[in-house]
Simulated assay, not measured.
Amino acid sequence: MIIGACSIELHIFEVHSLKEKRHVIKSILGRLQSRFNISVAEVDKFDVWQSSVIGIACVSNEATHVRSMISSVMNFVDADGRVEITNHEIEIL
């Protein structure tokens, strides 16, 4: 069993409150979960309204599939015009 974990630090554009931030993050998390069937959650920077860290995890029997899945998730998040990826860390176990 191969486990892939990734934390993605985001800068969120055009939000002026925590309520607006939560709306954007909740939308991204829901779309990621339904499209890629992965575990995903906001894991840090809960009280900072223009930044967030989301964590994703996926499990497979092949490391190439895990790497491909994480790459696809990163591309999907990067294509969202509401946020910018400022940092990410990937760990394959």
Rank of each mutant, 00 (worst) to 15 (best):
R67C: 05
L32C: 15
I8G: 09
G55W: 05
V43S: 11
V53P: 03
E62V: 01
R22C: 06
R67N: 15
K19C: 08
S7M: 04
K19A: 03
E42G: 06
V40T: 10
I54C: 07
G30W: 09
H65Y: 04
F46Y: 15
S39P: 11
S17W: 10
R35S: 12
V40Y: 08
S68F: 01
K21D: 03
I25H: 05
K26E: 05
I8K: 09
N61L: 07
S52R: 02
N61A: 03
G30T: 12
L10N: 02
E14S: 14
W49K: 06
R22V: 07
F36C: 11
A41W: 01
L32Q: 07
E14A: 12
I38F: 12
H65G: 00
V59N: 06
R67S: 11
I70N: 05
F13E: 10
H16D: 10
I56C: 11
A63Q: 11
D44P: 03
G55S: 08
S51T: 05
I12A: 07
V15I: 13
D44A: 13
V48M: 09
R35W: 01
A63C: 02
D44G: 09
H23A: 15
S7T: 12
S60V: 00
S51V: 01
S27T: 14
L32D: 07
L18R: 06
H11T: 11
H23D: 11
C58H: 02
A63K: 05
R35A: 04
V15W: 13
R67E: 15
I70A: 03
A41K: 01
V40W: 03
I38D: 12
N61E: 10
A41V: 06
R22F: 07
